[in-house]
Write a protein that binds this DNA or RNA. Structure first.
Length: 573
RNA sequence: AGCGAGGUAGCUCAAUUGGCAGAGCAGGUGCCUUUGGAGCACAAGGUUAAAGGUUCGAGUCCUUUCCUCGCUGCCA
């Protein structure tokens, strides 16, 4: 990885201070700890880049650890997907792939130890009673009647819980802390609950499972983690994290919290993403409209662009929504350097070059990537009948429309200048064909007399073009923050136009050998990636992101401007 | 209301720990161009939530107020 400016943020500040005071003997060891209950999304990418990035920056290590303490929600499928996604993002955990379930025996021993020293007890209140006894945000809780039972009895009961002597909900192990604490996490939190569900890894070996709080800090401790970085909602859990480690008296890492990522025009909670999949709003976890890593990958995003994005949005404790166009900026920036240019016409309009010989074909040279000389050049066939983009012609062009119009000359990229001589319409009055002439002197795209058309159009040869499917994606939601409305479900804001399929786009023949995952820029249109659905008979392209379109922006701007000018005039008059 | 966290440009973050409030992106204007893309240049954008205090000097320290977010799972 290229050495860049060391990133400074509030976390590196804390680490620097630890290094100065020698708290961890200069070690930096982080971890990325997903629960395998869904696919990773761009928000996780921020955490992954942070944890692995900090470790890299300080010459330390980062573990991958699955927080698999709740078998009711977790699946093997997700474990594979997560491993695949982290690797694809470009990070390596060496031989340090761990599972919280690896520590079930040790965690059990720690719980027994807390019972022995009188800091944990088996509670037989029902779940409802526990809730009622917990108190509220403003009122203290009430101690359970089981809170003071003798150590020996607790030991026996906890063993009975483990052995299956209780049903789910009949008993839990609780830490004896403080039922009147202002921090509700400290009001005798549950350490172990009974779950009859088999575990994806430990099968039927256990009937009791540790809660997140009882598993996480100790897992960090056992792995020698120095900085346990998590999101802001765990802030109130830190005193509990510390309490367990201090009372069990084991090595004590530092928990640090940062603000999770929110991205505009999408949702980033597993609960909502799982609904999008299950209720059929998208085709699956890797639907190119999903903000999942697998969705972004299929959409054509590169790991580099995602990493750059995570790097740029920075790190803080302020919750905010990052605009989607920031992500788009980074993928354009990356693809601009690496994607070969090709010509493809999404909405074809037939053009016949009247003065071009009937059965002549020429092979014209086209640059693959003006940003990268090593990408070389290719040959593009040219003939009498071509297709151009329908939007590139207007019969009655407005003032700033520089593309093709009756009587006007434009350049066909890498080919010739053509002039529109006649417009052919069908019975309904729709333009179906343009009769043009070409200037043989302008082969390759420049004129000996130095004249320069204002527009250059992309095109394909009718005789050589390949038909392909193009899937045009837009944002999944029409509003910036689909979560913001308290009265309406986020699904009310789904964009009905988020996928538009162009069944018969025409692409240049060089694309015949394109393979799934190959990325291209369709000149003047957008970046596209070959989808996994693609076959040699039928190419399928996903639009990753459009190019910035100044013409479109202009068009949207014009009316507003005129109105402003008019109102300015009326105000001054 | 209790506990905790936060409030600096439209957005995301800086500000060498008390010393001229800056950057990227977005938006604006212009230049250039065989992608109306890319690129380049320039300008604009701020009462640092508010008030008071300490100080030669406050985004930074103190006090008060306001606003936002999280927390009452046997989820993570």
């Amino acid at each position: 990885m290229p050495e860049t400016e060391p990133k400074r943020n509030f976390i590196t500040e804390i680490i620097d201070e630890h290094n100065q005071t020698d708290r961890f003997q200069g070690r930096v060891h982080t971890r990325f700890p997903p629960e395998p209950n869904g696919y990773l999304h761009i928000g996780h990418a921020k955490s992954i880049c942070l944890n692995f990035g900090i470790a890299q920056q300080y010459g330390g290590l980062c573990n991958l650890r699955f927080d698999d303490t709740n078998p009711a929600k977790e699946e093997q499928e997700y474990i594979h997907a997560i491993i695949n996604d982290v690797r694809w993002l470009g990070y390596d955990w060496g031989d340090r792939l761990f599972f919280a379930s690896d520590y079930f025996d040790q965690l059990y021993d720690m719980a027994v130890e807390l019972i022995r020293i009188g800091r944990a007890y088996v509670d037989q209140l029902s779940p409802d009673e526990i809730r009622a006894y917990r108190g509220t945000l403003t009122e203290p809780g009430i101690e359970s009647p089981w809170r003071e039972r003798p150590v020996e009895e607790n030991l026996a009961l906890f063993a009975k819980m483990r052995a299956g002597g209780f049903q789910e909900g009949e008993a839990v192990l609780r830490a004896k802390i403080d039922m009147s604490s202002g921090n509700i996490n400290l009001r005798d939190p549950v350490m172990y609950r009974i779950l009859a569900t088999p575990h994806p890894r430990t099968g039927d070996a256990w009937r009791i499972y540790p809660m997140y709080d009882f598993a996480h800090g100790q897992s960090d401790s056992l792995e020698g983690i120095t900085h346990s970085i998590c999101t802001l909602e765990y802030e109130a859990h830190r005193p509990l994290y510390d309490w367990y480690l201090d009372n069990i008296e084991i090595y004590h890492p530092q928990q640090i919290e940062f603000a999770r990522l929110n991205l505009s025009h999408t949702v980033l909670s597993k609960r909502k993403l799982i609904r999008l999949v299950q209720e059929g709003y998208v085709a699956g976890w890797d639907d190119p409209r999903m903000p999942t890593i697998s969705g972004l990958r299929r959409r054509g995003y590169t790991p580099e662009a995602i990493r750059e994005f995570c790097d740029e949005i920075g790190l803080g404790k302020v919750k905010g929504i990052v605009a989607l166009h920031k992500l788009e900026y980074h993928i354009r920036h990356d693809l601009n350097k690496r994607a070969n240019r090709v010509m493809a016409v999404l909405n074809p309009l037939r053009v016949v070059i009247e003065n071009y010989p009937e059965d002549m074909t020429e092979e014209l040279e086209a640059i693959n990537n003006p940003e990268d000389a090593s990408a070389g050049a290719r040959k593009v066939p040219f003939g009498k009948v071509l297709y151009i983009e329908r939007e590139d012609f207007m019969e009655a062009p407005p003032r700033k429309f520089f593309r093709l119009a009756p009587g006007r000359e434009v350049r066909l990229r890498y080919a010739y200048f053509i002039t529109c001589r006649e417009v052919i319409k069908d019975a309904a009055g729709e333009v179906v064909e343009l009769r043009c002439t070409y200037d043989p002197e302008t082969r390759g795209g420049s004129a000996p007399d130095g004249r320069r058309p204002k527009a250059t159009l992309h095109w394909v040869s009718a005789a050589h073009a390949i038909e392909a499917e193009a899937r045009l994606y837009d944002t999944l939601f029409t509003v910036e923050n689909p979560d913001a409305d308290r009265d309406q479900d986020f699904t009310a804001f789904i964009n009905p136009q988020s996928l538009q399929v162009v069944a018969a786009a025409l692409v240049e023949p060089s694309l015949a050998t394109a393979q799934p995952g190959d990325r291209f820029q369709f000149e003047r249109l957008a970046y596209f990636v070959v989808d996994a659905d693609s076959t040699s008979e039928r190419l399928v392209f996903n639009r990753t992101v459009t190019l910035r379109d100044q013409w479109k922006k202009q068009q949207q701007k014009q009316p507003r401007r005129r109105k402003q000018r008019r109102s300015a005039r009326s105000q001054s008059g």
